[in-house]
């Protein structure tokens, strides 16, 4: 397919969407219990955890990527551990490694909105549900999730969008293997390096429009799903 006379490269786009989607799913599954635990935490350890979760916000992505590269080296502990569970192959310069890196990179974008949503849910509502014979998982499903739905929507959209926009971590952990680890941001970098400005323009414009649309979606949903607690 051609757009404005330029051939669109679909491969990096599909790969980016695929990795962002997988990352979002993993983040919601792991981030929900973590955010719940942190939201109900009273001890001073909470400060440390909050700082750790927020770290990817301030750390240069290359630093995060560097450490992940070291951690996931083919003879390292992480790869060894995974191989016991039947994982074949290496983590660095592979899709799996990219997803793991993205999960760390986008962690605050999933955990922070979830944690804030959970914090606004009064304990007495959970107590009330308990006196009405609801088990913990039942309470979580029927009281917490509906009241925190804005948090879930924000967490999902932001994790997805932020993963789409990552560059430094991808470069360090994934490299630039077409069809395997070459995501949109890398492709743009590549084009600019090779002075292929037309290609870079097209991909950049697509990213710009996509990001704007996602952010508008988030803010729109926030307005629509406002939940009054009280």
């Amino acid at each position: 397919m051609q757009l404005f006379g330029i051939e669109v490269e679909w491969q990096p786009i599909w790969l980016t969407l695929e990795i962002a989607a997988m990352t979002t799913v993993v983040l919601l599954v792991l981030g929900t219990p973590l955010a719940w635990w942190m939201a109900r935490m009273k001890s001073s350890n909470k400060v440390l955890l909050e700082a750790l979760v927020a770290l990817p916000l301030v750390l240069p992505p290359t630093v995060l990527g560097f450490y992940l590269l070291i951690a996931m080296n083919p003879n390292g502990m992480v790869t060894e551990t995974l191989s016991w569970f039947g994982y074949e192959g290496q983590l660095t310069f592979s899709k799996t490694g990219l997803v793991i890196g993205s999960v760390f990179y986008s962690l605050p974008f999933a955990v922070q909105p979830l944690m804030h949503a959970f914090e606004t849910i009064p304990n007495r509502l959970l107590d009330a549900a308990a006196t009405l014979r609801a088990s913990f998982l039942d309470r979580f499903r029927t009281v917490v999730m509906p009241l925190a739905r804005r948090g879930f929507l924000t967490a999902a959209t932001l994790s997805f969008a932020h993963t789409v926009g990552e560059f430094g971590v991808v470069l360090m952990v994934g490299g630039n293997i077409p069809g395997e680890t070459r995501m949109v941001s890398i492709a743009i970098f590549d084009h600019v390096e090779s002075l292929e400005y037309a290609q870079a323009h097209l991909l950049s414009a697509m990213m710009l429009v996509f990001s704007l649309a996602v952010l508008m979606l988030v803010y729109g949903l926030n307005r629509k799903f406002e939940v009054k607690v009280g």
């Binding site: 009064p122 007495r124 509502l125 107590d127 009330a128 549900a129 308990a130 006196t131 014979r133 609801a134 088990s135 009281v143 509906p146 009241l147 939940v227 009054k228 607690v229 009280g230």
Partner: peptide, 20 residues
Amino acid sequence: RPTAERDIGFVFQDAALFPH
């Protein structure tokens, strides 16, 4: 014994109705 199995009714200070 879990609250759910104690056969009690509980009315909270501020009602604690589910807002959703």
